[in-house]
Design a protein around this nucleic acid. Structure first.
Length: 196
DNA sequence: CTTCAGATGCTCT
DNA sequence: GAGCATCTGAAGA
């Protein structure tokens, strides 16, 4: 299956955030292919968005990756112990990205359970199963994604995205999570999700 | 189901 | 030094 091309990412960030729903995040880990269908995203747009790390084109060592060409992975550490994965959008020099907030496991669930809980899939509680990949930190833990992949080109292994296959349900949208500090931007309906 | 506290370290001022 | 695009386990309803 072909990977998403760079032009997919080189578009308006809200469009990319919606179009990524139902696409498949692919991670090659220890010789195994881990796959997850994208079910929840958020858009961050530096040009106009106080919640974006690169608001008003603010350049720091961390935000440098947001200015990279579209189709670049932006990973950063949050709260001292979790990693968040973003996919850089829009033309190079426009700092913007889509945060991957949730996946539905498609392949490699056993390995992902090991990575996330240190236990086999069959040993998980019902609660752990139900909340397996529904959060940005959980996605990165389960796919062994950390800042060593910051700046990675998403058109190459070991991390890339495959096109949507088949239909998806209705796309919902609402305010983003955890950005209450961002004044007027905290209410932007820039979180998108589909029902699993 | 809900709330709540605590863990933890990097980044920027 | 302050704050952060989070998660977990425990406890209560």
């Amino acid at each position: 299956m072909e990977r998403l091309p760079r032009d997919f990412y080189n578009r308006d960030t809200l469009t990319v955030a919606r179009d990524l729903l139902g696409c498949v995040l692919a991670r090659e880990y220890a010789g195994e292919l881990l796959l997850g269908r994208i079910t929840e995203t958020e858009a961050y747009i530096g040009r106009c968005d106080k919640a974006c790390h690169a608001y008003h084109y603010k350049r720091t060592r961390r935000t440098e990756t947001l200015f990279a060409r579209p189709g670049t992975a932006y990973l950063y550490l949050i709260y001292g112990m979790y990693t968040c994965l973003n996919l850089v959008t829009e033309p190079e020099g426009e700092p913007a990205a889509v945060l991957i907030r949730g996946l539905e496991p498609l392949a490699g669930a056993e390995t992902m359970a090991r990575l996330r809980f240190g236990r086999d899939l069959g040993e998980l509680t019902a609660y752990q199963r139900k909340n397996f990949l529904n959060g940005p930190g959980k996605v990165c833990k389960a796919m062994s994604l950390d800042r060593t992949l910051d700046g990675h080109d998403l058109l190459t292994p070991p991390l890339y995205v495959l096109p949507r296959q088949g239909e998806i349900g209705a796309i919902r949208c609402g305010p983003r999570i955890g950005v209450d500090y961002a004044q007027e931007a905290k209410d932007f309906p820039w979180r998108f999700w589909i029902e699993v």
